[in-house]
C-alpha cells in the first residue's frame, strides 16, 4: 500500500528561515529519506515553492476559470496530485485544462511550481 505524507506549516515562518536553518532541516529530513529509500520504500519527494507563485484553475464552468493565488476553499479536500514537466506556466495551465476537460465534476486544480523534486523508486 502506498501512502502520501503531506506537509503543512506556516509559510511566512518557514520562508523566513535562515539558509543554515533551512539546510539543517533538509539534511535531517534527507537522513530519514535515505533510510526509507534504502529499504525500497520511498517514492517521489517534492518541495513546493510559496503559495504566492500559485495559480488556480477552477473547474465546473463552461471554460475553466483561471485565478491568481493558491486554492483557498476549506469545504473541499486535497484528493490527489500530478507532477508535470513544463517549459513555463502556460504549458502547465494547458495540461491542467486538459485534465479539467477530462474530469468536469467541479473542484479545482492549484498549479504550483516545485523547488525540489526527487523521483524515488519504491519497490512495490
Amino acid at each position: 500500500m502506498l501512502y502520501a505524507i503531506l506537509c503543512y506549516n506556516d509559510e511566512t515562518v518557514t520562508s523566513a528561515w535562515s539558509e543554515e536553518k533551512d539546510r539543517e532541516t533538509m539534511d535531517r529530513l534527507a537522513a530519514v529519506e535515505t533510510r526509507l529509500a534504502n529499504a525500497g520504500r520511498l517514492g517521489p519527494v517534492a518541495r513546493l515553492l510559496p503559495t504566492t507563485s500559485a495559480t488556480t484553475l477552477r473547474k465546473g464552468h463552461d471554460e475553466p476559470l483561471i485565478v491568481d493565488g493558491p486554492f483557498a476553499e476549506t469545504k473541499e479536500q486535497l484528493l490527489g496530485f500530478f507532477i508535470v514537466d513544463c517549459a513555463d506556466l502556460e504549458e502547465a495551465l494547458s495540461a491542467a485544462r486538459d485534465l479539467a476537460i477530462a474530469n468536469q465534476e467541479g473542484g479545482a486544480y492549484e498549479i504550483r511550481p516545485l523547488a525540489i523534486y526527487k523521483p524515488g523508486e519504491p519497490k512495490t
Binding site: 515553492l49 504566492t52 506556466l89 511550481p113
Partner: peptide, 16 residues
C-alpha cells in the same frame, strides 16, 4: 535555482 524558478513562475503569471 529554486529562487529563479519562483521568479520565473511569477513573471509568467504576471504576463498573462
Amino acid at each position: 535555482r529554486p529562487m529563479i524558478h519562483e521568479g520565473l513562475s511569477l513573471i509568467d503569471k504576471a504576463m498573462r
